[in-house]
């Protein structure tokens, strides 16, 4: 087997980050970067030039944190909602269907959840409930 070269790993990481950018290409999905932009950006143009050698790696790290940690975490509830809707919302009054579907749904739940979550973590898939809709589990409580 050929040894894995550093160049391959870098290329793979680049592809991953570029792929992840599908999700973080959406401004709403870059919480860490948005926080830095709003609170830690130098106000003057000279300051921005001076700070750029530090700000660039910090910005890259923040982008990676958004893509790899924060955005995937924020998609868990949506992935779970998709899974429940896809696998568990069947007519529970039909006893036979209940008996038939429950074990199948149970087996498929981690697979569907995992794939859905991965998809939502990587790509910019619409949230189940658009923001500002007053919708979601918190509403009405």
């Amino acid at each position: 087997m050929k040894p894995v070269r550093t160049g391959h790993l870098v290329a793979l990481a680049l592809v991953g980050v570029l792929g992840s950018s599908c999700a973080i290409g959406n401004e709403e999905r870059r919480r860490v970067l948005n926080y830095l932009d709003a609170n830690w950006a130098p106000s003057s143009e000279g300051g921005r030039w001076l700070a750029s050698p530090v700000a660039l790696p910090v910005g890259l790290l923040a982008g990676v944190a958004d893509a790899v940690v924060v955005h995937p975490l924020s998609q868990i509830d949506d992935a779970w909602g998709d899974t429940v809707e896809f696998l568990w919302e069947f007519d529970r009054d039909d006893q036979f269907r209940n008996v038939l579907m429950t074990p199948l749904s149970a087996v498929a739940t981690p697979v569907v959840f995992g794939v859905d979550w991965l998809g939502r973590a990587i790509f910019d898939i619409d949230d189940r409930y658009p923001a500002g809709d007053g919708d979601g589990p918190e509403a009405g409580r």
Binding site: L33, L36, P42, R48
Partner: peptide, 15 residues
């Protein structure tokens, strides 16, 4: 847009 998205623009620049 370095004025309102300084870190975001810098992070995306090399990409």
């Amino acid at each position: 847009d370095f004025q309102s998205a300084y870190y975001t623009e810098l992070a995306f620049l090399p990409l």
